[in-house]
Simulated scan of single mutants.
Amino acid sequence: MPSSEQEPQQVGIEALKNHIRTHKIDVCLWCTRVLTMLCTFLHLFPIFGNPQSAYNKALIANAATSALRLHQRQPRMTPSRETFQAILLEDSCHYLIYSLIFMYVSPFTLVLVPIFCFSLIHFASYSLTLLDTIGQNSWWGARLLISLVELQSRKILSLIALTEILLMPFSFILLFLSRAGLLTPFLYSQFLIMRYKSQRNPYTRNMFRDCRAFFEDIAARPSTPQFIKVIIMSVIQFICKFAPPLPAQNAQ
């Protein structure tokens, strides 16, 4: 009787081992995302170690995640213009560039918000796959937490998009505070343009639209002073000049 009760667990563990052997890159991605979240936590709450070191390790772990994911999306890279353009369209390439930009900037906690949130969403999703491999009824507490993350995934993605936008003016502030290099705002603006044009993730583009509607509503209110209206509309027109054209399927 005891042996028959233990048999399903043994089958589940063997299935997990087989899954790890056959999905090595996916498991590595899961591990690097765990490391990103752990290092972010240690940066915010330096229980042990140096918070600046934890900050850098979080960015390095995210760069590793992005590189692995880019390898999955573009396994055959050839030295051609078409391949380079295809790579630049990948979200994983965007966040590889993001990690490299801020790796040479003094620690700024807001930078870790997007990479932590992305890691959390994908960690939860793949953790569910691993739990299903072990058994449908295993670790119900973990499944409950995962379901909470998945239910809030749209809000988390919107938070990521808002943070991406807010980091643009902050990059100039960091420059004036001598905490960032001269190229940081320019490089980050290119990153933001790539996020705006993303074919798989429209949240940054939608957040720009929502922000524009919000500020235009403020400008249209009778109680808003005239000079504030002029500033708001001037800033909106200035930003719109940098909005890149979208592919036909996204522009519709």
Rank of each mutant, 00 (worst) to 15 (best):
N56F: 01
N50E: 10
S158K: 15
A86R: 15
Q72K: 15
Q52Y: 00
V105Y: 08
T83C: 15
N137I: 01
T109V: 04
A124V: 02
L159I: 08
D132C: 06
A161D: 07
G141M: 06
Y104D: 13
G135P: 10
L157Y: 03
D91K: 07
T83A: 05
P107H: 09
Q74S: 04
A142S: 15
R73A: 04
P114F: 00
I156A: 08
L148T: 11
C93M: 14
L70R: 07
R154N: 11
A61W: 01
F108C: 13
W140Q: 12
A61Q: 08
S127A: 11
L59K: 05
I115V: 14
W139Y: 05
Q52A: 09
L130R: 12
D132T: 06
N62G: 05
L157H: 11
L89M: 13
S119L: 02
V111M: 08
L145R: 08
S158N: 14
L148R: 15
P114M: 07
S127E: 08
S147M: 06
L100N: 11
S80V: 04
R73L: 02
V111G: 07
S119F: 02
T78F: 01
I60Y: 04
A67P: 00
F108S: 13
V105H: 07
R154Y: 02
R81P: 00
T109M: 06
G141R: 10
Y104P: 00
Q74K: 13
N50C: 12
K155A: 10
L162A: 14
V113G: 01
L144P: 01
F123W: 05
S147C: 03
Q74E: 12
E90S: 12
Q52N: 15
G135Q: 10
Q85W: 00
S66V: 00
L162T: 15
A63N: 12
S66H: 03
V149L: 09
F118V: 09
L96P: 07
V111F: 02
L68M: 12
I160H: 02
K57N: 14
I60P: 02
A64T: 14
S53E: 13
S158A: 15
S53V: 11
